[in-house]
């Protein structure tokens, strides 16, 4: 029914979109958690309220991404996850802590609220750091050596800072007053981590393989890639310009840091996808070598084409319903 050459490409694209949506959406949730220690208790309640209705659905994009990897590229799924056994475990424990602390802090006896806040921060940190670590290891071809681990440690920190940055952008968008001003300061600090992280990944990626190096620096490919760093640079400059002036009268441009951070993540992700395509396990396994049978992929694709627009539709509905500034989180 579907072409066996096109199908794996479609699934790689779907998986890419899921990962990107996850990184942006759960990125801001996790970022809010990472910023917890800098806020006082009332501010923390409001920060939680700003992500309350969304975090569960945001995390589901990770399930979809890993699910697509599992079902569409089972061999790659096994290879990647066994190579990343420990960071995956750390991430899972982080996700558990983050998710349950969210609920427990609102329902446990008052005296227990603080430990659950710590658990929320710790869970968010473990998740962000391990994801950054996995990103680094993936770029380094999933090899465990001292230099690759050192690089992965750098990307771990960078991704955590990037999440904090987009989290601060979210808080600027969803709150006002003292907390919003604080978040502007957090974003001003975070943006340098983002620049460092993107710089480090950009410097390391072409050095990993000759293939990627050629893809980046040979003509005419270099012209294809050139807009990415140029746009990223322009975004960083404009973000810095905006952050120095925020908050503005009438809450103008409060949306800009979040949208700008999202655009930066999209650009960064685009660069990665461009570099590693067509490999799914870097330099070892292409998406065609790793793909499931055409029958299995076809039956999933049919469902996906029907259901994904519906999912996107009601996700937009949820964001629309909970638009505007976050107020006290309450069940009624």
């Amino acid at each position: 029914m579907f072409d066996p050459v096109v199908l794996p490409f479609i699934f790689a694209a779907l998986m890419g979109v899921s990962i990107l949506l996850y990184v942006v959406l759960d990125g801001f949730d996790l970022g809010v958690g990472l910023l917890f220690p800098f806020a006082d208790e009332a501010e923390r309640d409001r920060m939680i309220a700003s992500i309350g209705p969304f975090w569960d659905a945001n995390e589901t994009w990770l399930v979809l991404a890993i699910g697509l990897l599992l079902v569409a590229f089972p061999v790659a799924h096994g290879d990647i996850l066994t190579a990343l056994y420990l960071p995956v475990a750390v991430m899972l424990i982080g996700l558990i802590l983050r998710g349950v602390a969210f609920e427990f802090r609102a329902k446990a006896p008052l005296g227990h609220k603080r430990p659950w806040d710590v658990a929320f921060w710790a869970g968010s940190s473990m998740t962000a750091l391990s994801q950054g670590f996995m990103l680094g290891m993936y770029i380094m071809g999933l090899q465990w050596t001292w230099p690759t681990v050192a690089f992965a440690t750098l990307t771990a920190g960078a991704l955590a800072v990037a999440y904090s940055f987009i989290g601060a952008g979210w808080i600027i968008l969803k709150t006002d007053g003292a907390l919003q001003r604080k978040a502007v300061d957090w974003a001003k600090g975070g943006i340098w981590g983002v620049v460092l992280g993107m710089g480090a990944v950009s410097a390391a990626t072409p050095l990993v393989s000759q293939r990627i190096f050629d893809k980046w620096f040979s003509f005419p490919e270099v012209a294809l890639l050139a807009p990415l760093p140029l746009l990223s640079g322009a975004l960083v400059v404009s973000l810095w310009w905006a952050l120095r002036r925020l908050p503005m009268e009438g809450d103008r441009f409060a949306w800009y840091p979040f949208v700008g951070a999202t655009a930066l993540m999209v650009l960064g992700f685009g660069g990665m996808a461009y570099s590693f395509y067509p490999y799914i396990v870097p330099e070892q396994l292409t998406i065609w070598e790793a793909a499931s049978s055409t029958e299995a992929l076809s039956i999933i694709l049919v469902g996906t084409l029907f259901v994904l627009p519906v999912i996107l539709g009601y996700t937009v509905l949820a964001y629309f319903i909970f638009r505007g500034k976050a107020t006290k989180l309450s069940y009624d």
Partner: peptide
């Protein structure tokens, strides 16, 4: 994987997102 994959994918697509998104509305949207 050719059997388990589609079944798990359909779970995520038809159930997981539905629960997660409308849970937000159910809990906080009243």
């Amino acid at each position: 994987g050719n059997i388990a994959g589609p079944l798990l994918a359909y779970e995520v697509l038809t159930a997981f997102f539905l629960e997660a998104v409308f849970l937000g509305i159910m809990l906080f949207g009243a």
